[in-house]
Amino acid sequence: MYEFLENNSMYVVLIVVLIIWTGISFFLFYTENKINKLEKKVDELKIKEGSHE
């Protein structure tokens, strides 16, 4: 594996680029999760308001 990457150094660049995009997509997943939670909260609030009426 190491030798293959040593001889085909283009794949090292590919690994580097993939690390960066996975890092950024992890951040997106994190934000997505948080927004999902917020949406649930909004729904709960709406139900509460509905019961007041």
Binding site: E6, I15, I19, G23
Partner: peptide, 20 residues
């Protein structure tokens, strides 16, 4: 937080490059 994330990315990509 974003800065931390990019610093970690710089370090990991740098480490892969350094290996070779």
């Amino acid at each position: 937080m974003m800065g931390l994330m990019f610093a970690v990315l710089a370090t990991t990509t740098g480490m892969v490059w350094a290996k070779f």
